[in-house]
Design a protein around this nucleic acid. Structure first.
Length: 483
DNA sequence: TGAAATGTTGGGGCG
DNA sequence: ACGCCCCAACATTTC
């Protein structure tokens, strides 16, 4: 009989560095068995959507390769986590199971069940914080209740101890004498059968190495000027770390530390503001997890109960036009097509397309959230829920009901030369900048010259924004009235 | 992490 | 030189 081992259950922490569960498991000295369990056919949002599955495929390969360099390997299984863990634990005589905590409601329940059962069987179970800077239960307001507004929340976080140094990568991970059986990653069938992943492949390199690469490029090229640069979807002004953070190929603590070190080494005053603005974005991620933990019903239900009765419209056709980037508003369509092709959308554009779906089309935010879940490589239940509820005005720190983005002026403001539109809506590429965000106002002559026939090559606007805005304002205002 | 409507100001053209 | 108008620029209010 082989000596007892320690299971490390990998979930949203697909990295070796700054991985507390892995680190502590190695410290125990016993052989370590890294396990990943793919749970199929769970509940809604229980496993990644299409784009996330594509990402996961490569991320698992990358993790396995990293583990092998450290003398270990990844054991892959499918099924219900509790029964799979039971099985693997038996196969390799595990006496301990370590993992980094999750915060999604279903995941919290699952982990609690596993913990209870294994403890009852006398195994050592330890969980760690591998994906947040602050635990959700650490931060409460004066009344001991969760914050619902970002700024005071983040101030309270910053008043706590600054996030510590990331843990190093274990140089060597002790292996068991005999490895339990593992499914080939291919057999998880995470890669789409049809070729829609072409664009994703061109845009991304999943895995910790890719994460470090994006972080390095961001620090060198975009941190300075981040405060305004981040608002430009036509430029590389953001870190593009979201999918890596989603799957834990990099930890927020690593990002935090890298930014602090970088802005310390460079001229401190020059970068202080940008660094703070960027770290504040990590704060929004913290806030999203915090809210999801404290208000677990929010992926489906509005945080603000007044919205339960909001008269959303059911309109399959309009939803499809939005999904396919055929709304007739170039800025909106550019965003939706960037999403479809790359699995990612600039945050400025996300706010715009979300506002359009919810306020111009009056389609429920849950429908938008579901589409994002399926198409974003960074689809993260906490962030997705916060973002959509914020836009719809029914969530924490919500956009005031009267805040309706104008798809034309947002385009003109944040994509002034129309480069973003030209990149993703090529049928408009030859239209002069003056009309690029509102082709329906272009003179017939200009359209002809640009080779655009409206209604044929590119649609007319599916709604009149001015009218749609008034319609939304009226409905939202009714909601505010005490009933 | 808006936009539009409305109000105010001040410079320049012009009688 | 003066007052008047126009209007852009900016500020404030409202949705």
């Amino acid at each position: 009989m082989s000596p007892p081992s320690t299971l490390v259950w990998f979930r949203n922490d697909l990295r070796l560095a700054d991985n507390p569960a892995l680190w502590e498991a190695v410290e125990r000295g016993a052989p370590v068995v890294p396990v990943f369990i793919m749970q199929e056919a769970g509940e809604k949002y229980g496993s990644p959507g299409g784009a996330g599955r594509w990402w996961l495929h490569y991320s698992l390969h990358s993790l396995d390769a990293d583990l092998r360099r450290a003398g270990s390997r990844l054991i892959v299984r499918t099924g219900d986590p509790l029964s799979v863990l039971r099985q693997v634990a038996e196969e390799c005589h595990a006496e301990a199971v370590f993992w980094n905590r999750r915060y999604e409601p279903a995941a919290v329940a699952c982990d609690a069940e596993v913990k209870a059962e294994f403890r009852a069987r006398g195994l050592t179970i330890e969980s760690f914080n591998g994906s947040l800077l602050y635990e959700p239960w650490q931060v409460l307001n004066q009344e001991e209740k969760p914050y619902r507004v970002f700024t005071p929340f983040w101030k309270a976080c910053l008043a706590l101890r600054e996030p510590g140094s990331p843990l190093p990568e274990p140089a060597h991970i002790p292996a068991p004498e005999i490895w339990p059986v593992s499914l080939p990653i291919e057999q998880l069938h995470l890669e789409p059968k049809i070729g829609w992943a072409q664009g994703l492949r061109a845009a991304w390199t999943p895995g910790s190495e890719g994460a470090g690469g994006n972080l390095g490029v961001f620090l060198d090229e975009a941190l300075e000027g981040y405060e305004t640069g981040r608002d430009r979807p036509d430029r590389q002004g953001t870190s593009r770390l979201s999918p890596y953070l989603r799957f834990g190929e990099i930890s927020p603590r690593q990002v935090w530390r890298a930014v602090r070190e970088f802005s310390k080494n460079e001229a401190r005053t020059r970068l202080a503001g940008s660094a703070q603005a960027f770290l504040r974005q990590l704060g929004w991620r913290e806030f999203a997890y915090y809210l999801l933990f404290h208000f677990p019903y929010t992926p489906d239900q509005p945080l603000d109960g007044n919205f339960a009765a909001f008269p959303w419209r059911e309109d399959r056709e309009a939803l499809t036009a939005w999904q396919k980037g055929r709304t007739g508003y170039p800025y909106i369509d550019a965003g939706m097509r960037e999403l479809w092709h790359t699995g990612w959308m600039h945050n400025r554009a996300r706010m715009g397309v979300a506002s359009f779906l919810v306020k111009d089309l009056l389609i429920p935010w849950q429908a938008g959230a579901a589409w994002f879940w399926d198409t974003l490589v960074d689809a993260d239940l906490a962030n997705n829920t916060l973002g959509w509820q914020w836009t719809a005005g029914c969530g924490a720190d919500a956009a005031p009901y009267f805040r309706v983005f104008n798809p034309v002026s947002q385009g003109e403001k944040f994509d002034p030369e129309g480069r973003y539109v030209r990149a993703w809506v090529p049928e408009l590429a030859n239209l002069p900048g003056r009309w690029i965000h509102k082709p329906w106002e272009a003179p017939e002559r200009e359209l002809k010259k640009a080779g655009v026939e409206l209604g044929k090559d590119y649609p007319y606007p599916m709604v009149d924004h001015a009218a749609a805005r008034l319609r939304a304002l009226e409905l939202y205002q009714n909601l505010k009235k005490p009933s």
